[in-house]
Simulated assay, not measured.
Amino acid sequence: MEFHQRPYIYTGEVQLNVTDLAKLTSFYTEIIGFSILEREAQKVVLTADGYTPLLILEQSEVVLTKEPRRTGLYHLALLLPTRADLGAAIKHFSRNHIPLGASDHQVSEALYLSDPDGNGIEIYCDRESGTWHWEDNLVTMSTDPLDARAVVEESGDQEWNGLPTGTVMGHIHLHVADLQKAKGFYEALGFSVVSRYPQALFMSNGNYHHHIAVNTWNGKNAPRPSEGSAGMKAFTLIYPNEKTLQKAVGNVQEIEGDVQQVDAKVIVKDPSGNRIVLRVGK
């Protein structure tokens, strides 16, 4: 996972506001394959390796069902260590009759599904970065049919035993209201555009194919979700050191972005209201 460690800026844990904590916990442990790291009355912290939080589920007193055509989470993306792991995942989802989408993006191979609240999930593996095609600082990506049979064959006799220890939050993909405003904001945080799709931008730090993607597929100027709506509460960006983090904070302040200090955490909001926790990696 070369692009998800120092010296890069990369994606960390995602927080979801959920409608039914028990139901969503069951889905993310039994179907997706997380383990429970911490459990409270209204909060569950999930992990793949037994110590690193990757997903936090929270249920507030009043939760609205996920609202359509709003800004917020398009999907969270779990990056598996190997193609064989992805093959084992395909076998697991097939046996459990889970509806899937699938794509070959040239840089990666991916499965797509949704949780019971309608939050999108991508589970993917990367191709070797040396095989990615770059031209004028842009990486070639596509949406082609996945050769699922070849991926499954790669797994051989390997069976799915939950998310592998090396799983990370590979990237986050967001609905936004305005692409250019989102571009300026995430550039301030340290990311650069590396690919363009119709009504979408893909951005990374350090020539990954993308740590952040933004789109206006829910409509330009899409409204923000209501307070208390099910969906993404926040996601985390992890910085290599305090100097790099503070530079990002200063950049956001220069463009008059929303920056708050809450309980020793730096929290910013992008122009579409997506909430981001900034922290230094351990």
Rank of each mutant, 00 (worst) to 15 (best):
T71E: 04
E2V: 07
L24I: 15
N218F: 10
L86T: 05
S129G: 00
M169C: 10
T216D: 09
G170D: 02
I212H: 00
H97R: 10
Y112D: 10
A89K: 07
Q15H: 15
E109I: 02
E61S: 15
L237P: 01
P225C: 02
S192R: 14
P198W: 11
S26D: 15
L54F: 01
E227F: 13
S103K: 09
N207F: 04
A222T: 02
A88R: 08
G101E: 03
N221Q: 14
N241D: 14
Q180D: 12
D144T: 00
E153Y: 06
K23V: 10
D115F: 10
R95L: 08
F185E: 13
G206S: 01
E128N: 14
G231D: 13
D117L: 09
L37G: 04
C125D: 09
F202N: 08
L55P: 05
Q246R: 14
Q199H: 12
H211F: 09
T29W: 10
G156I: 03
W217A: 09
V259D: 15
I121C: 08
A177P: 04
K265W: 14
A182R: 03
Q106V: 09
K233P: 03
L21M: 04
E109G: 04
N221G: 03
A110N: 00
A84W: 07
N96M: 12
R127E: 01
N205P: 01
A110D: 00
E13K: 06
F93V: 04
A150G: 04
I32K: 02
V62I: 15
L163F: 11
P116M: 04
R279K: 15
G50I: 00
A182D: 09
T65C: 03
E187P: 06
Y28M: 07
T52W: 07
R69Q: 10
L78N: 07
H92M: 00
I32E: 01
E256S: 13
G118T: 13
G87S: 10
F3V: 01
Q59W: 05
G228I: 09
K23P: 01
V259L: 15
G162Q: 01
M1E: 05
V252P: 07
N218C: 03
Y197S: 09
Q180K: 12
N205K: 00
I56E: 12
E227T: 14
G118K: 11
L78P: 10
G206M: 01
G281V: 11
I121E: 10
N215K: 09
G33K: 11
V262L: 14
L111G: 00
D104E: 14
G166N: 13
Q5I: 05
F185V: 12
A48N: 08
E61G: 15
Y208P: 02
E58Q: 14
Y112E: 04
N241V: 03
D85Q: 08
A230W: 06
V277P: 05
E58H: 13
Y28R: 04
D85E: 06
T25H: 05
A88G: 07
P53R: 05
